[in-house]
């Protein structure tokens, strides 16, 4: 061994399974805290902020599965939220399909579209994949915005509500987020977690080892898209309005910043960061509106200097503290 390579650190001295479990527990603890917040936060505005945070937490978690674990850097997570929102929105608006059924349909439709996209881009990587998914995202948004006869374009499509109480919505979103968190955990703890990361690191080596790369890559696209579509559909009925703005590239930028700041390829980081980023951004909005400037700068700084994100920084701090 060369003298430069660092000594085994305690965090990596664990099986990745154990690592995932630690992350899962921390994320669950964070969800427990979020569950208690409405006791203190009576303010409808801040409840709304937290609800939107959870919307983004689902999106960040779903995209992290695809980009952070499977290494497929798609630039379309917000698009799938938009697709989910329009699925239930159109079904509801035109056929009076009840929201719950519409949400299920949204999960299925966005998952299927994700599967098709995943199939299509199977052989693309790096800048080619980023460009293809980016143009997919823009095409979808342009179609939604310009099909005015059907979607009413930028005016937005009014859809039915689901719950009357804001606190009810709060716990519905929290439930959805927690269910997804558990699902992702079970998935990542299984062989799927190993396979996705293997594909991220070296596709050829993964195939040599017998991993069915086509299947797992497509599955990652479909699952991540379904999660996004689910979030979008919930949001549609929460806001009672669906607009093409859900699919703006800037929304993807926000999701990306949450994942990067939280720590790509960790279960807890992106989800927790979604709350931090969004709540902080609402607060910054109040004190001068610099929120997006700050986050964009943070993304660049984190990517440049702290690639492991907040989660990595926290783990390093814990290690130092233990060693002291």
């Amino acid at each position: 061994m060369t003298t430069q390579s660092p000594p085994p650190s305690r965090a990596s001295a664990q099986l990745s399974n154990t690592k995932t479990t630690v992350e899962f527990r921390v994320a669950l603890a964070a969800m427990a805290i979020v569950a208690l917040l409405p006791l203190g936060v009576g303010n409808a505005y801040w409840l709304g902020v937290l609800i939107v945070s959870m919307y983004f937490a689902i999106l960040a978690g779903g995209w992290n599965l695809l980009a952070g674990y499977a290494g497929q850097f798609s630039l379309a997570p917000a698009t799938f939220a938009m697709i989910g929102a329009y699925t239930t929105g159109l079904l509801n608006h035109y056929y009076g399909v009840p929201p719950l059924l519409g949400i299920v349909a949204a999960i299925v439709v966005s998952g299927l579209v994700g599967l098709l996209l995943g199939r299509a881009v199977l052989r693309l990587a790096g800048p080619y994949l980023a460009l293809t998914t980016l143009s997919f995202a823009e095409i979808m948004r342009l179609v939604a915005a310009n099909s005015i006869d059907i979607t009413r374009g930028d005016l937005g499509l009014g859809v039915a509500g689901l719950l009357d109480s804001r606190v009810g919505w709060y716990y519905l979103f929290l439930g959805a987020l927690t269910v997804l968190l558990v699902l992702f955990y079970l998935l990542l703890r299984s062989k799927a977690g190993l396979f996705l990361q293997a594909i991220r690191d070296d596709e050829v080596a993964a195939r040599r080892a017998g991993v069915d790369v086509v299947f797992w890559k497509t599955a990652a696209f479909a699952l991540s898209a379904a999660a996004s579509g689910f979030a979008g559909a919930l949001y549609a009925h929460f806001a009672e309005l669906v607009t093409p703005e859900l699919g703006l590239i800037a929304q993807t930028g926000l999701i990306l910043s949450m994942v990067v700041i939280g720590g790509m390829g960790t279960l807890a980081g992106p989800i927790i960061a979604a709350f931090l980023v969004y709540v902080l951004s609402e607060w910054l909005r109040d004190v001068g509106g610099y929120q997006l400037v700050v986050f964009a700068a943070l993304v660049v700084i984190f990517a440049r200097f702290f690639r492991e994100g907040l989660w990595g920084l926290a783990m390093a701090a814990v290690r130092r503290w233990r060693q002291a």
Binding site: L15, S16, K191, D201, A205
Partner: peptide
Amino acid sequence: RVFRRMNVIDNLLVAGRA
């Protein structure tokens, strides 16, 4: 060719499980 961001045990587990 190894999985550079996975630890040694996980590298082996990938092949075993696959």
